[in-house]
Design a protein around this nucleic acid. Structure first.
Lengths: 222, 222
DNA sequence: TGTACATCAGTGAACGCGCGTTCACTGATGTAC
DNA sequence: TGTACATCAGTGAACGCGCGTTCACTGATGTAC
């Protein structure tokens, strides 16, 4: 008969689902342990604290993501033999890496919700943890984007990347509500892959948009 | 001597700041009432519950916003005498209306944080409240956007508007953190008005991006 | 003008509850000699 | 092979705490006659 997964895995699986559904503060350890059919004290036994459990939920996605994304970027750089990698290919590679990891575990939507929560909930410890553990792969990515968009001033590129990050996280983390509306109003069921297809031209156009008009001078004219 | 604002106002002012800083669940009534120098029971006396207080904080922004935005759209429609209003003007008008309301109260950043929270925190009652009370002005706006972008399929327009909503809310609600990074790395101080200036061409380009490639057929070819 | 009553903002203390965490404990398995 | 001890996953019950809400109350102001 199918062996029940061990306590640590059951806690992580359940915490992931509940955090994604309701957020961190709104999910108690009692919610998690009762749904996971695990003793309340087991969370503190295995993870030490609720904070560490939250970080462990993220690590289970971000560790394999980082490995894959680095590997994909290695490959891409090898293909282009030191030359500039076009923006479209960089974005495509990132999208593919993000999609691959949770695909194994059938939980793309949950992963996206978690990413959204990581940004929006006031969990300072989580932002710090993610920055420290996984910051370097994003630094590598943004450097490649810099080479792909030499015409953009650095600050402009910084802001546009964050604009697009907002688009993606906001859309995918609020996916259920938006999907319900879209299905009711336009009669089409939208998968995450459909959304990525729709996002592609929008993100590319946004990154390639004309520069904004210069800021009005503060004091002196000319 | 300067009269102290009344209890209701002090509660709303303080709640607004604390909610924006930490979110709803992370802000207790004791936090609010002690900082506002008001009796703990006064919140339930004046507002009935914490939920109602949260809604009242939003109403204080959204009521005047709705009035202004309707008026601005009236004016815009009169100017174009029944003709189509260009997308740029619609976006400009919305941006102006959003910026005007909190400008009176010097709290644009807080308002933006609150909008971000309204979407991201699991406050179902709040989303329902906003939809019921303020849904009609957004319906009016999206209908005008529809006329301005006749070449976009309805579903595509729906998604792109939400993509851009995500950009704006994500950027402005995480503004403090992003601003710190931008200031450190690029040595420029960014005001909300600077951000709006940077957002303009990006949003326009995103809305006008080419249509995505058609979805791959599920089963039958052709 | 005076008195009785109603209304209302605000108060202080307590209520019951769910929270994250701790602690002494059990029982199974592994290791040393 | 047998015994003593160590390790470790897991448990049940309790801890103290902060939470939103309630309640009986005060004291000021307004209203009726």
């Amino acid at each position: 008969m199918a062996q029940q997964p061990d306590t640590v895995t059951r806690i992580l699986d359940t915490a992931e689902v509940l955090f994604a559904e309701r957020g961190f503060a709104e999910t108690s350890l009692r919610n998690i342990t009762s749904k996971a059919k695990v003793n309340l004290a087991a969370v503190n036994y295995h993870f030490g604290s609720k904070k560490s459990l939250i970080q462990a939920v993220f690590a289970r996605y971000l560790d394999p993501f980082t490995v894959r994304f680095h590997a994909a970027l290695d490959e891409l750089e090898a293909d282009h033999a030191g030359g500039v990698i076009p923006l479209e290919e960089l974005l495509e590679t990132m999208a593919r890496s993000v999609l691959e990891v949770p695909a194994e575990r059938n939980s793309l939507k949950g992963f996206m919700r978690l990413l959204g929560l990581a940004y929006s909930q006031a969990q300072g410890h989580l932002r710090r943890y993610i920055q420290e553990e996984y910051g370097s792969v994003f630094t590598r990515f943004t450097e490649l984007v810099r080479r792909a968009t030499p015409e953009l001033p650095d600050a402009e590129r910084f802001w546009r990347l964050h604009f697009m990050l907002g688009t993606v996280i906001f859309t995918l983390s609020g996916l259920d509500a938006l999907r319900d509306i879209a299905e009711k109003d336009y009669g089409e069921h939208v998968s995450v892959r459909d959304l990525v297809r729709r996002l592609r031209p929008v993100v590319v156009a946004a990154m390639n948009a004309p520069l904004p008009e210069p800021a009005p001078a503060r004091r002196e004219a000319g």
